[in-house]
Structure formats: structure tokens, C-alpha cells
């Protein structure tokens, strides 16, 4: 399966939309850099991520959350926070990576 990475805010670019349109059941989606903004439960992108979580794994890079003053309790329920080591494990664990730059 593919690990999709999204590093742009959904409120600035369409990258997350395109990723979610193409992503297949069972794949992983990692939000990093400005991509972590999508994980906010109060944001307009939360709904689409909740749907994705029903059959895909969604991860967010902790250091990028911290840097932006976002906390675990601010996130859509079900999103897993990973650190840099976890990021490496994800890349190693999936077959391929697709970076939605």
C-alpha cells in the first residue's frame, strides 16, 4: 500500500482533496508541515478526514503540530500522532510513498 504525504494546508492548496480522491482503502496518509492544519477538528477539512479514517490510517507529525501550537485534543478523533522516528517507520512500512507536494 501507498503512504501518501501531504505538506500543504487544505485552506491554501487542493493537495489534500486530490490525495483523498485518489487514495485507496487501507493506505496511509501522513500530514506534515502545513499539512497538519487539516487535522484540526474545528476546521472545514475535518469532515473529509473523518470519512477517510473509516477505511484508511491518518497520521500527523507531532513536531509540526507543536510548532504551530496545536495539541492532540484539537485533532480529529482517530488521527495518530507520530514523531520523526515514527515517520521513518511509516515510510519503511508502506510499499511506496506518494508526496502530494
Amino acid at each position: 500500500m501507498i503512504l501518501h504525504t501531504v505538506n500543504k494546508s487544505p485552506y491554501e492548496r487542493i493537495n489534500l482533496d486530490s490525495c483523498l480522491r485518489v487514495a485507496r482503502i487501507g493506505c496511509g496518509i501522513l500530514l506534515l508541515e502545513d499539512g497538519v492544519i487539516a487535522a484540526l477538528a474545528t476546521g472545514a477539512a475535518a469532515q473529509a478526514l473523518s470519512v477517510a479514517l473509516s477505511d484508511k490510517s491518518v497520521y500527523v507529525l507531532g513536531p509540526d503540530l507543536d510548532a504551530r501550537g496545536l495539541r492532540e485534543c484539537d485533532l480529529v478523533i482517530g488521527i495518530k500522532i507520530v514523531d520523526y522516528d515514527g515517520f521513518v517507520d511509516l515510510v519503511a512500512g508502506y510499499d511506496t510513498v506518494q508526496a502530494w507536494l
Binding site: 500500500m1 501507498i2 480522491r21 485518489v22 487514495a23 485507496r24 493506505c27 511506496t96 510513498v97 506518494q98 508526496a99 502530494w100 507536494l101
Partner: peptide
């Protein structure tokens, strides 16, 4: 379709995107 494209992507060894 997006779904068909997603299936094709899953068959790849390497994806390069920009």
C-alpha cells in the same frame, strides 16, 4: 477515474510526483 487512478498507483514500485 480517481478510483481507477488510485488502483494503478497502488501497482507501482516508485512514484515521482510534482
Amino acid at each position: 477515474s480517481a478510483t481507477e487512478l488510485g488502483d494503478l498507483m497502488e501497482q507501482q514500485d516508485i512514484i515521482i510526483s510534482a
